[in-house]
């Protein structure tokens, strides 16, 4: 399994480059398969919301494109001259919106994989020494938002269990305990950092990060994919010019295939659950 955050960083950059630079639907479909493949061995139990968000994000551009664009030769139907939405609705606009939506879905999916596989503590651990303190501060600040949302949900659930309805009138009764919980958590963070000797001297590692052969393989594959994507010319997909996309060149297929390296290593190596949970 891939553990090193830098390996995942390289993979993320390569996957995002593939998603943004080439809009060929065949390549987009393959890239989506690759990202799902990479996600599967590392998946957790409560990650469906991210994918739901990604799918919703992918559908929105289709509606916008087909409703607002009047270009294209493959007319689905023609609306009477209603402001903004009136006129020809074309299949070309649907294809353009779908292509854009798929790029957005791929972006969300890549970050979902990154969120699932990389712990913020590991990212902080690989930061250079001058960036250690600001990095820790940023990581704590970023972790604060979801914790605050979770606290808000808990307070609301507790109120509902007591039979109290939640509305805008109950905002003071919600916000006061939320503020107290947040302050208490901030104090806990401070005490935890103090107990660990944060900033008092040279930092030590309880669980040092080591490069494994799988990590190196993923880094090499990601770099090769980036080079292939950046150097070789892409065949852009423009449904308004040609609705039917052309098949991508073999080098493009190879670039996308290289991104499946984390999934390949995960399928060949047995998952060490204990280590991943550590």
């Amino acid at each position: 399994m891939i553990h090193h955050p830098l390996a995942w960083g390289g993979w993320t950059i390569a996957a995002l480059a593939a998603a943004f630079i080439d809009r060929n639907p065949y390549l987009q479909a393959l890239l989506l398969l690759v990202v799902i493949n990479v996600y599967l061995p590392y998946r957790g139990k409560r990650r469906a919301s991210t994918w739901k968000f990604g799918i919703a994000l992918a559908i929105v551009p289709i509606f916008f494109s087909v409703a607002l664009s009047r270009f294209g030769r493959h007319v689905l139907f023609t609306l009477p001259p209603i402001p903004i939405i009136g006129g020809r609705w074309t299949l070309d606009a649907v294809a353009f919106g779908a292509s854009t939506g798929l790029a957005l879905l791929l972006t969300v999916a890549v970050f979902a994989v990154l969120q699932t596989t990389v712990r913020s503590a590991d990212v902080v651990a690989v930061l250079p020494r001058p960036l250690y303190r600001p990095g820790t501060t940023v990581a704590l600040a970023l972790a604060f938002a979801p914790k605050t949302l979770a606290a808000f949900q808990s307070i609301r659930d507790a109120r509902q269990l007591r039979g109290q309805r939640t509305s805008w009138r109950s905002a003071p009764a919600l916000l006061l305990p939320l503020l107290l919980t947040t302050l208490e958590r901030a104090l806990q963070y401070g005490e935890s950092l103090d107990a660990r000797g944060f900033g008092s001297g040279r930092r030590s590692r309880y669980r040092p990060l080591h490069w494994t052969a799988a990590d190196l393989l993923v880094v090499i594959a990601s770099l090769a994919a980036i080079v292939l994507i950046a150097v070789l010319p892409a065949v852009p997909y423009n449904p308004y010019v040609n609705l039917v996309p052309v098949l991508p060149n073999p080098d493009r297929l190879l670039a996308v295939g290289l991104l499946a390296a984390p999934a390949l290593t995960a399928s060949l190596l047995r998952v060490d659950h204990a280590r991943h949970r550590a």
Partner: peptide, 23 residues
């Protein structure tokens, strides 16, 4: 053939990884 082979390879890989328990 190249595209189909790649897709089949990825689907097979997905089937293998789907049978695995997530961490």
């Amino acid at each position: 053939l190249a595209f189909g082979s790649m897709a089949i390879l990825l689907l097979t890989l997905g089937a293998i990884n789907l049978r695995r328990r997530g961490p």
